[in-house]
Design a protein around this nucleic acid. Sequence first.
DNA 1: GGGAATATTCCC
DNA 2: GGGAATATTCCC
Lengths: 211, 211
Amino acid sequence: MAENYSSNVLDLNLGVGNGSGQVGQSLRPRCPAPFLLKTYDLLEESGDGGSGGKIVSWNGDGSGFIVWSPAEFSELTLPRYFKHNNFSSFIRQLNTYGFKKISSKRWEFKHEKFQRGCRDMLVEITRKKCEPSVFPSYLKSSSEENAITSNNSMEENNNSHQLLMEENKNLKKERLELQMQIAEFKSLEMKLLECLSQVMDNHQNKSRGQC
Amino acid sequence: MAENYSSNVLDLNLGVGNGSGQVGQSLRPRCPAPFLLKTYDLLEESGDGGSGGKIVSWNGDGSGFIVWSPAEFSELTLPRYFKHNNFSSFIRQLNTYGFKKISSKRWEFKHEKFQRGCRDMLVEITRKKCEPSVFPSYLKSSSEENAITSNNSMEENNNSHQLLMEENKNLKKERLELQMQIAEFKSLEMKLLECLSQVMDNHQNKSRGQC
DNA sequence: GGGAATATTCCC
DNA sequence: GGGAATATTCCC
């Protein structure tokens, strides 16, 4: 295991802690997720035609990247940037950040905001929401797009106020969705109880009828 | 970094997947959390008086353990068992599993179920996470507490920011409560479905027996 | 591909 | 000490 990227200082630079109070995922962080930076830099560092064949590289137009040799990539590249050497864990992260596998024949991945020469664009990439996952998928609503469309027109100064208001709005929207889900659960619970009651009644009747 | 304990096979053996299609934390897992096993084994492996002074060991009666040298422990011991060498991350895990620091003078920790010679007891130790345990009392939603408790003492027009932050905090608290309610509902739903299934099975069997 | 658990990190 | 985010793993 190497030590440049595995150093702890670089490992987690979470996008929280903006200013005074606290905010979670609804505000855009000032710096990209460590995973994205590492993956990007890993591509920049590769490519310089080394000795053997390429292990991983940008694709032709820099709109995505290709893992040419998953085996070597896992054994040699991954541990230099991450705390593991599992290709599947790397893939899991790609999926978490919304990358798409765009070829069935080779390990080529794309993300709209992940392009060669656009390291600054990485900040636009966010983890897919995993709302504490308490509800079944069939009740899941589309509370996506908390990504803030902040017009860069108004800069620094006090956009923290704007951000707070934005977050506030999102929280209220989320609250509404949660309340609706709870309503659905209540309805579902009643149906289930009703069903249970019927089945038991039915059972009772048959038992009586046959005694 | 060594490789015995860092091997992936041993890393995560989650306590889920019991029997049919069921739930994690309500059923006791068959094997302790990896963190506990590693910490226990690390203590067993130490102690054999090596060359220098002890780095970490059980305490006198085996009811807890002591990290004698945090620096060496972090640099030498931790990376052999975990994917890091940060003492604070180790402490964080201890807290997660309910260990207590029982001395202000040295790094001595205890957990009722973590004792020398009782490796089998580790399975009793669980994470302190938010178990949606059966039916607690957070079903009392704080729907009205959004009325902000503004102390009229501060009356600068700048307090709108404060108010926003306050409301924001309350919204997040409310969100958590709603999510927990949803967790309760989900648990309830599963219980109802299970119950329904049993009743119907029972019904089926009786019917068959009487035809 | 993604849900969910544990692990690691950062912050209060 | 603990909340919460990201990382890693396991499983479907």
